[in-house]
């Protein structure tokens, strides 16, 4: 029996649908966490990062 026979019986096309759902869920979790209000301060600091070539915006010990 060849590998392809085994795989043919495994019904892989449904796996793709399962993976799709998993990806969607993972993505939603991330989306929710990104929009958590508690992170405003952190994001504000981060968004200023490109504008300052000299001073780190989130240096050591910064507990934002």
């Amino acid at each position: 029996m060849r590998l392809s026979d085994i795989m043919a019986h495994a019904g892989l096309s449904t796996y793709a649908e399962v993976a799709l759902v998993i990806f969607l869920v993972a993505f939603l979790l991330i989306a929710v966490s990104v929009f958590a209000p508690s992170r405003k301060q952190e994001f504000d600091a981060a968004s200023r990062m490109p504008l300052d070539d000299v001073h780190p915006q989130s240096p050591r010990g910064d507990a934002s």
Binding site: L3, S4, M7, A8, L12, Y15, A16, A19, F23
Partner: peptide, 14 residues
């Protein structure tokens, strides 16, 4: 993972 799910079936399903 995404790539595998996209690719594996074409390779392995006879």
């Amino acid at each position: 993972v995404a790539s595998l799910f996209e690719i594996i079936p074409t390779f392995l399903i006879k």
